[in-house]
Write a protein that binds this DNA or RNA. Structure first.
Lengths: 198, 198
DNA sequence: GAACTATACGGAGGCTCCCTCCGTTTAGCA
DNA sequence: TGCTAAACGGAGGGAGCCTCCGTATAGTTC
């Protein structure tokens, strides 16, 4: 599941240049959504990606489709990063590093998920189910390893942790300052290390 | 507070033609918002009102201002209708007739209030406070009269009734069919007539 | 490595919408 | 009846949406 050979469903794989452009579009869109919300001009998105509008519309026929793909893309990147961290760091450090990245994801998620929900209505439920499942899988791998190693308490489950972390973000409000959630987040992370008496 | 001499704040009253056009714009906007949401083209609103766009923008410099005024206008009309009903019908019938009109208001309110809240943020709170107070006043006059007459139970307050009625609407969902809420609404209205043992 | 074709590119163009500006019209007054 | 402040309205410039189609190129075949 590297950045190459992106396939949407099971159709014929994209041509190399097409895959590259698609990636550039998603990156540009993600940046702009973060900065200015999901109402930005699609022509501007194409311009920033260094691509014609035609290419944008070929890949993402509607604005909401672009939003959905950016959302899924963010999640995929977050999960891929989880795998990388798991391979590179000791379990409890990998978990902590991943949760820090999860914070950034949670911040951007708000706008995207809101737009999706209001535009797609109940049709958005499969998107959210997919995302939930992916996070569950990646999170469990990290949490499980740390728990097996004995450096993280065993009485919590993946979704408890993710909820706690995203709760911190919500509580930190819309403040764009990442420092605002630094300390509360620290508390949650340290809480994971605490071993309750049996 | 008739339809003439509309004043926004305490400025000089509008010229007759201006007041007429303002009214036409509000009516057109209300219809279109009901039909197609608050994202409709403002040029189309002006067209339907039989007025130039310039006139629209002079009266409502921003879309959100138009939405807010339509919202307030709906409420004002509902309250005015309450006065009329109270003068024309026996108290309990007036109350019931008014609550039926309240249903229509509650349906349209959803879209408008949502747009206001998301666009104005906390700035919208005075709008909602004003509206709340007006409904409280009109509702109390009708309910109080019916209670004084003895045809409606005395252990409920205005906001209880309004909440119950709008609850019915919400529960009826987005179904545009007014029949969907007819029976549940009937239950609430009949419930008002029931006299609990003391 | 040359030729071929399915695939993809990109931006011009037609449309709608936004909002402003200003010459024209008219309500209200004396 | 005339005067003037107030209001009208729509042309026009700018921007965004989306489509269409002539051009370019990746990948394949010989």
């Amino acid at each position: 599941m590297g950045p190459a050979g992106v396939t949407t469903g099971s159709a014929r794989p994209l041509r190399a240049d097409a895959a590259r452009n698609r990636e550039k579009l998603l990156a540009a869109a993600r940046d702009m959504f973060d900065e200015a919300g999901t109402d930005v001009s699609l022509e501007e998105v194409a311009r920033r990606a260094g691509v014609g509008v035609g290419t944008l519309y070929r890949n993402f026929p509607t604005r909401i489709e672009l939003i959905e793909q950016v959302y899924r893309h963010n999640v995929d990147e977050l999960c891929a990063s989880g795998d990388r961290l798991r391979a590179a760091l000791p379990p409890s450090e990998a978990l902590e590093a991943w949760l820090l990245e999860f914070v950034a994801y949670a911040a951007s998620k708000r706008g995207l998920a809101g737009a999706l929900r209001s535009a797609l209505g109940d049709g958005a439920s499969t998107v959210f189910a997919d995302v939930h499942e992916k996070l569950q899988t990646s999170g469990s791998a990290l949490l499980g390893a740390a728990q097996a190693e004995g450096t993280v308490r065993t009485d919590v489950e993946t979704m408890d942790v993710l909820r706690a972390v995203s709760g911190v973000c919500v509580a930190a409000g819309d403040s764009k300052d990442p420092a605002a959630s630094r300390l509360p987040l620290r508390l949650v992370l340290d809480g994971l290390r605490y071993q309750p008496a049996p």
